[in-house]
């Protein structure tokens, strides 16, 4: 396995070359999918390590899809772990710890699950077709549509007064 890592030389077709090419979009994706207390680059690094433990990047047909799925999974696991602690912390230290003292616009999206944020980001911001987004996230196109629809509805319900415009369903 170590040899696999070391064989990645720094060229355009090497693993590092692949990462270098994909990094900008992976970094943006990670920043959306990760919770605010997680450094996006840490999530990219975790996904990269998780991938390299099993495959070299140049062996993958769609390394970007693989890495994005790894990031969504890692972010979802991290969120589940933290939610367990959050459910315990109020009992141990009072409710004050579970509240955000410095809410920001960025934290508005925390109400969505990492996968839902990923779907909205790919479909509404990156303007990917549902089929392409589904391919990157390992979902079916209909699942992507449903998730996007429900995520938008939830944003409307939770943040309606503070949002200037929530896209209507296509």
């Amino acid at each position: 396995m170590a040899a696999k890592h070391q064989q990645a030389e720094r060229g355009p077709t090497s693993d590092f070359g692949i990462l270098e090419e994909l990094y900008p979009q992976l970094r943006r994706f990670a920043a959306v999918v990760a919770d605010l207390d997680v450094d996006p680059d840490d999530l990219v690094q975790d996904a990269l390590c998780e991938t390299l433990r099993r495959h070299a990047l140049h062996e993958l047909d769609q390394p970007v899809a693989y890495l994005k799925r790894a990031m969504v999974n890692a972010a979802a696991s991290d969120r589940r772990r933290k939610s367990r602690w959050k459910s315990l912390l109020p009992r141990l230290a009072g409710d004050s710890r579970s509240a955000d003292h410095y809410p920001s616009d960025l934290s508005d999206l925390e109400i969505l699950a990492p996968l839902d944020r990923a779907v909205l980001f790919l479909v509404d911001v990156e303007r990917l077709q549902h089929e392409l987004a589904a391919g990157e996230l390992g979902l079916t196109p209909s699942a992507v549509r449903k998730r996007a629809s429900r995520a938008r509805a939830r944003l409307r319900a939770e943040l309606g007064p503070n949002l200037s415009s929530v896209p209507k369903e296509a």
Binding site: A31, D39, D105, L109, R117, V125, R152
Partner: peptide, 14 residues
């Protein structure tokens, strides 16, 4: 601020 703007801002954080 629209959701898309929120997502875009979030994508550029850090």
């Amino acid at each position: 601020m629209s959701p898309n703007e929120l997502l875009e801002r979030r994508a550029q954080r850090g």
